[in-house]
Amino acid sequence: MDALEPLFDRNLDCHMCRHKFTSKKLRSKFVKVDSYDTDFCPSYKEEEINGLLYNIYVCPKCGFSFSDDFSKYFPPGTKEEIQAKICNQWSPQDFGGIRTIEDSIKTYKLAAYCAGLKKEKYIVTAGLYLRIAWLYRLLKNKDQECRFLKIAIANYNESYSRDDFKGTQVSEVRILYLLGELSRRVEDIEKAVKFFSMVIERQNRSVETTLVEMARDRWHDIREQQKKAN
């Protein structure tokens, strides 16, 4: 009997043009996380078995790119805009095989562009930009990591102000923590302190005690750094 491979071909229908295609996906049993950064970026035990690389599906026929978080609903006018700005410009290419980090960054950028045109929830778009930043972190490209962290912050801010994270797996405490931590990473310390304080204020009505503790730890780290600087 053949040994089970980490990657398998997932059968998909393009949400945009209904073209049937396959895209590699990692079997969850092979995904082994070693640790997480303070913004939840995972470090995998084996670099080539990286769960981040295969989250996006790119239709090889029309170029529409999406993840499992995308809704299948297209608001009025969005299909026409995607047709004009993506499908009509698309040179057929296939991202359905084994991906490098650079390949994966391209797929996330395509998905983020599609999400914007499709008017996906800001919480979905924020997650795409955050993962682009994580992939640049793996490449040790600090400038691009910081650039995409800032775009992720802008989208998380929109999501929080519009409440569009409600009904998703992202809670209010988690989005506030992320806003604090990403702000800290781009050295917007005033905003970081503000959002971490908002998490700590919710400690009595939140079941996510680990996030509250993480916010408290980050808040104390910032205060200690400020004391040393003074």
Rank of each mutant, 00 (worst) to 15 (best):
M1A: 14
A3I: 13
E5F: 10
E5G: 03
P6Q: 12
D13V: 08
H15D: 12
M16P: 00
M16Y: 15
T22E: 13
S23V: 09
K29T: 07
V31L: 06
D37K: 13
T38I: 06
C41Q: 11
E47L: 05
I49N: 09
G51I: 08
L52I: 06
I56Y: 00
V58L: 08
S65Q: 08
F66N: 05
S71C: 07
K72E: 15
K72D: 15
Y73R: 11
F74W: 15
P75L: 11
K79R: 15
Q83Y: 13
A84Y: 07
N88A: 15
N88W: 07
G96T: 03
D103K: 01
D103S: 02
D103W: 01
S104K: 04
L110D: 04
A111Y: 02
Y113D: 09
A115F: 11
A115N: 08
K118P: 05
K118E: 09
V124M: 06
V124K: 07
A126K: 02
A126H: 02
G127H: 02
Y129T: 03
A133G: 12
L135I: 06
R137V: 02
L139Y: 07
D143W: 02
A152I: 07
I153R: 03
N155F: 14
S159C: 11
S161T: 14
K166V: 15
K166W: 04
S171Q: 11
V173C: 03
R174H: 12
I175K: 08
I189S: 05
E190F: 10
A192R: 07
E208Y: 00
T209Y: 00
T210Q: 00
V212Q: 03
E213Q: 04
E213W: 00
M214T: 01
R216Q: 10
E224M: 12
E224P: 01
Q226Y: 09
K228L: 15
A229D: 08
N230T: 12
